[in-house]
Design a protein around this nucleic acid. Sequence first.
DNA 1: TCAATCACG
DNA 2: ACGTACGTGATTGAA
Length: 302
Amino acid sequence: MEWRQVGKLKSTYVDALPELVNPRTGRIHTTFNQAVAATGRLSSTNPNMQNIPVRSERGQRVRDLFVAGGPDRVLLSADYSQIELRVIASMSGDAGMIDAFLSGEDIHAATASKVFGVPLAEVSREQRSQAKTVNFGIIYGVSAFGLSQQTNLSRSEAKEVIEQYFATYPGIKKYIDDQVAAARAQGYVETLLGRRRYLRDIDSRNQAVRGHSERNAINAPIQGTAADIVKLAMIRIHDRLQREGLKSPMILQVHDELVFDAYSTEVESLRELVKAEMESAFVLKVPLVADTGVGRTWLKAH
DNA sequence: TCAATCACG
DNA sequence: ACGTACGTGATTGAA
């Protein structure tokens, strides 16, 4: 497994990326596709700059190779905190999840506290980790089987955790049922901004095919609304950079993160501008929060 | 050309 | 009885 990890990093990144450096600019120039992903996300090719390693230690050494454009510059990274969970909280109107975000709670710990019925301060690492897995799973339409595969919970335990989750956040259960019903009635679901995903297999007699379509009905409005919001923020940031005469370019989008090649002289005003535009790009029933970081490398900007 | 694998959010 | 968590792109090796 270690051999495979090293081989992946070498062939896909260490060997391939230097070949893609433009001799004129000395930089790598990706292409962003705006009409590929079914949810409205961007995708990135030749090379894919949205899957640069970061999770493993060896992966972090690769990400550390991406540097600012000159000695007078730094990379500024700004990323949305929990944007998809905030979107489902808002779209579903679930009072408990909305309250958790309004109070600025650690959403995974808050979920664990409610689902497992323990005080917030007594949530164990294991409980928080399981709650985090459920929170992510819910966005994808996970089943008890899927959750049991993803955790060390048995199937029956996973079933109970999901039931407790829906008892804690009844609005989320309703959101899921409503989106699947909307897909059946209309043949599509849509984001808060009206982007549609058509689901032609929603009535399939093949339950695996139909199940896939139902999970798309659950997930697409969430992932798609988040994508819409990020795009709005990008447009507004670009406008303000131009209007206010800032010269630091926006160079990357990684779904919930924007990266800028910032001139050191501009970095503080840029940071304020970017954070403000990301957090006000669209008004939900919960706050949008964007965290920023600055560093000489992409890794260190986090 | 395709499936399997693995990198990311 | 059946199938089982969303969205992508690049590389590899076999057909």
